[in-house]
């Protein structure tokens, strides 16, 4: 199976979907002439021309709204945010226009649009450029939210997102674009709403999503050396969330660690914990532990940033805590 980068997997998805459907276009800052701020759109301007690969001014609210308007009358826009940090300026269009249009029009206007871009922290970009917004986005009825952490998942989920008739949020990661993984040469789709069990074990479940899947898998590898075998469940979709997969894993292991990149309060992990207490209350052998960013704006200094982020040692410590091995 070919090994490609996360960046190229996304690029393949964009190219294939734009070839398949001429209503699909890509719009955002630097997507065309510059070939993408992170080169995800490399070569697309040359193949599809400037009507379908559209460089915009730096105007997130504006071009997100342009996408929604175009979707109202039959196009299928892919709106790239250079990062989701900048997409805060566009939140009115994502929430008030895209997510609600179908409902407030009584079912007349669906919005088949993809909003995509890197989410969360990279390295030493400090407070305004290092934020994970998935709990904000997953909060909104009318949106679907996916967070692929591997090239395989990125391609399959982006293609499904483009074909979906609803607004879909695709959360990528600056630190993921260069990572590599196997991606089939033949076409495939990954259904939105299904989690994937990335590692099987019986002692504890690590439930996570997005780039934290890489942290969870490294933690699982190290724990295996100590004889602790964990389930690693990659949620992939945050809305809708695969509650069945969460339930199945926790009923098997009876212990759970929920790992996410964002902050604690109102985080995705809080929702996962709620599903577990509802569905698996009698199955639990220990309180659930959450691993997340420390409750501060992201600092610049390397050591402080490291201390703020969730990582492998914190995840291992959490697993040992729920197994009462931390005494």
């Amino acid at each position: 199976m070919p090994v490609v980068t996360y960046r190229d997997a996304l690029n393949q998805a964009l190219q294939e979907e734009m070839q398949r459907d001429d209503r699909v276009f890509l719009m955002g800052e630097e997507v065309g002439v510059y070939q993408g701020a992170y080169k995800v759109s490399k070569g697309l301007l040359q193949e599809f021309g400037e009507m379908r690969v559209v460089d915009t001014p730096i105007t997130e609210l504006g071009f997100a709204g342009v996408g929604v308007g175009a979707a109202m009358v039959g196009l299928r826009p892919i709106i790239e945010f250079m990062t989701w940090n900048f997409a805060l300026l566009a939140m009115d269009q994502v929430v008030n226009s895209a997510a609600k249009m179908l409902y407030m029009s009584g079912g007349q206007f669906n919005i088949p649009i993809v909003f995509r871009g890197p989410n969360g922290a990279a390295l030493q970009l400090s407070a305004q450029h290092s934020q994970a917004w998935e709990s904000w986005l997953a909060h909104i009825p009318g949106l679907k939210v996916v967070a692929p952490g591997t090239p395989y998942d990125a391609k399959g989920l982006l293609k499904s997102a483009v074909r979906d008739d609803n607004p879909v949020i695709v959360l990528e990661g600056e630190m993921l674009y260069n990572t590599k993984g196997e991606v089939p040469a033949e076409e495939y789709l990954i259904p939105i709403g299904k989690a994937a069990l990335k590692r099987e074990g019986e002692h504890c479940s690590i439930i996570t999503h997005g780039k934290m899947i890489l942290v969870a898998l490294q933690a699982a590898d190290q724990l295996t050396k100590e004889g602790i075998r964990v389930d690693v469940l990659d949620l992939l979709s945050l809305r809708p969330m695969d509650v069945e997969a969460i339930t199945a894993s926790v009923r098997k292991t009876n212990r759970a660690v929920v790992l996410e990149e964002g902050w604690e309060i109102g985080g995705i992990g809080a929702q996962v914990v709620d599903y577990i207490q509802r569905e698996c209350f009698d199955d639990l052998d220990a309180p659930i532990v959450r691993v997340h960013q420390v409750d501060v704006p992201m600092p610049y200094a390397k050591n402080l940033e490291r201390a703020a982020k969730p990582d492998v040692p914190k995840t291992i410590a959490a697993v040992k805590k729920v197994m009462y091995l931390d005494q």
């Binding site: 709204g65 342009v66 929604v68 308007g69 175009a70 009358v73 269009q93």
Partner: peptide, 13 residues
């Protein structure tokens, strides 16, 4: 909020 939507409709046309 709907003014950019109008621009998007114009874009689609």
């Amino acid at each position: 909020g709907h003014i950019p939507l109008a621009t998007g409709v114009g874009f689609a046309i």
